[in-house]
Design a binder for these strands. Structure first.
Lengths: 339, 339
DNA sequence: AGCTGCTGTGCAAACGTTTCCAAATTGTGC
DNA sequence: GCACAATTTGGAAACGTTTGCACAGCAGCT
């Protein structure tokens, strides 16, 4: 219950001076500062965030919008963001907007716009241009991770290039019969990533003069279970089997590996599998992948945002391409000899 | 920028009446309410949470403290909590307190106590009695999920009984050589769950007159990777092999299944595996488990909390035992014939 | 007609900080 | 010592709501 007023009385200073002393802004003599801090400590003073936000306009609170909290990529981004924010003394408000339901709109209106957060990190979520404009209009910077975001800063990986590289890795090993596990179309609307990766795959195949068989481009939902189910169909089908699978996410790749094992296929002798992500489980499965370090992306988003907030000046939207790392493990090798 | 003042002017009403009209509290004539709402809509008025919190003392914001955001159990709880809060118009502030570092203390002091959240949900995190008292002293209810929490309300599953039941399931199938995968000791301090489950295991074994072999009680870190690594050692060791494994979490159980496959062991013919959790991946692996519905636990925590906040009266701490469901799949069966 | 008890409304006082501005103090160079 | 600048300080006005209190209008009683 002790407010700054009590602290001021106890320290024999004015409220204004105590405020300055404790916040570190403005000039305060060393003596006054010490007295204020001592008094605050004595009374166990904790400033009210509400009052301080109201007066200063700063919340020290950043919102993050994610479509899922289960998929590894998203929880990793959240983890990176959380850690960076905690270090900076910020709170993290989590908006887990599941489904493409109307929920998303209401979240934006009811929560994000109420000046409760200083900024927003949108992960793989395409806000509309008007939504972005609304946020920016109330001086709330936005950073998008993973998704394209018109008018806002973004952190992205080179989805096209990566996918082409992954595909080329398989091609260079000698594979010609390559399948692609792509993302669920439910997300397409908000989330161009699966499509871009698919395009990268097709581009690389075309460049190598290889045929993309429609029945080998199959869709799952980015999870292990989904990848497993889809890969079972792919590998179990009566027609010819691909010798390699490029999955748009490590989770689907792992699902594919599990499915292959079910059929008695050896990885990589009978089937090569490559993913994208850098999933913690990748090592266990010997998964060759492209590590995109989502924790680092989250941390970078925080850094960009905080710099922007402190800098004061509204800076133009920046598009950052986050570096990735090709990790070659044991799930990819030359194709089995043709029979 | 439109404040309630502008709305009042446009509606030809006083600020007070507009506030009452929009918040739904107090008596307002239907006519005034309509006018206020229309004016608010016209101006795109969005009330400032800071100001409203400052004046009313309510934040409509609840904090959740979790040790991890990657492990399935925690992300599921978060998901359940998030959904329930969004429905109720509350924000969720996430405190991902990794490690048993000093971080935890600073989070409590710097964030939780600053009256920024109306209440706190602590997941599998034993706050000290004094920390709890501090929170309650500033009228911040606490609900603990999973962990024991002196003086606060808790939602828990019957860890002892469940573990005994899981063990008995194996015993009834005829197993006598049963191993237990328990939790990492790093968490012990904050997190009595692994120990309680171990005790349940030992209790059931003792009741059946079975021997608990120390070398068959092995420790991992609750993850798939950890369970895998530990199970490999367990199963690969030169000495006799157990015919069944009871893992304290589904993730470790899945790790054990993967390790068993590596050794060419068939599940359940050569090795039975049972877990606890109800992990989404359980079905894929045919894992027999005890489903504890963490999403539901999260939702229940929110309900308890909101009732308490609305009820006004500080109610006594309640201990709720959350119901679980025994899910028998294909990972458990009678032991292989003795050789 | 005179009371009582509602409902609906507005005024103004919180809520607990930050920060602008002006005043007071201290320091500096001659 | 003096003029002037730089540093410290305090008073008080925001910040944008909610809510206690008082008062007006009005219906239902006796």
């Amino acid at each position: 219950m002790a407010g700054i007023k009590e602290v001021a009385e106890r320290a024999g200073l004015s409220i204004a001076t105590v405020s300055r002393a404790l916040s570190g802004k403005g000039n305060v003599s060393a003596k006054s500062r010490a007295r204020a801090q001592a008094a605050a400590a004595d009374l166990g003073f904790v400033p009210s965030y509400q009052a301080s936000s109201l007066a200063s306009g700063r919340n020290y609170n950043i919102g993050i919008v994610v479509p899922s909290v289960h998929r590894w990529y998203f929880s990793s981004v959240v983890e990176g963001v959380s850690r960076a924010l905690l270090d900076a003394g910020y709170d993290l408000t989590l908006y887990n907007v599941t489904e493409v339901s109307g929920r998303r709109q209401s979240v934006l209106r009811d929560f994000l716009l109420r000046k409760r957060v200083d900024a927003v990190i949108a992960v793989a979520l395409a806000l509309t241009e008007s939504e972005i404009r609304q946020m920016l209009a109330v001086h709330r910077p936005i950073v998008g991770i993973g998704g394209p975001l018109l008018g806002a800063s973004t952190i992205r990986i080179d989805d096209y290039g990566l996918s082409a590289a992954a595909t080329n890795h398989l091609i260079q090993l000698g594979h010609t019969k390559i399948a692609h596990l792509t993302g669920d179309s439910v997300y397409e609307q908000d989330f161009k990533i699966p499509r871009t990766r698919l395009t990268g795959f097709k581009g690389a195949m075309a460049a190598a003069g290889l045929e993309v068989r429609p029945e080998w481009v199959v869709t799952a939902d980015f999870t292990i279970q989904g990848g497993y189910a889809t890969a079972r169909q792919l590998l179990g089908s009566a027609s010819e089997r691909p010798t390699a699978v490029f999955a748009a996410s490590d989770e689907m790749a792992i699902g594919a590996i599990l499915a292959a094992r079910d059929f008695g296929l050896r990885i990589p002798e009978d089937l090569s599998v490559i993913g994208i992500d850098g999933h913690d489980l990748g090592e266990l499965f010997g998964l060759t992948t492209i590590d995109q370090d989502p924790r680092g992306q989250g941390a970078l988003a925080v850094r960009l945002l905080l710099e922007g907030l402190d800098g004061g000046a509204e800076r133009a939207a920046v598009d950052t391409t986050y570096p990735t790392k090709f990790v070659i493990r044991s799930s990819t090798a030359v194709p089995p000899p043709a029979r």
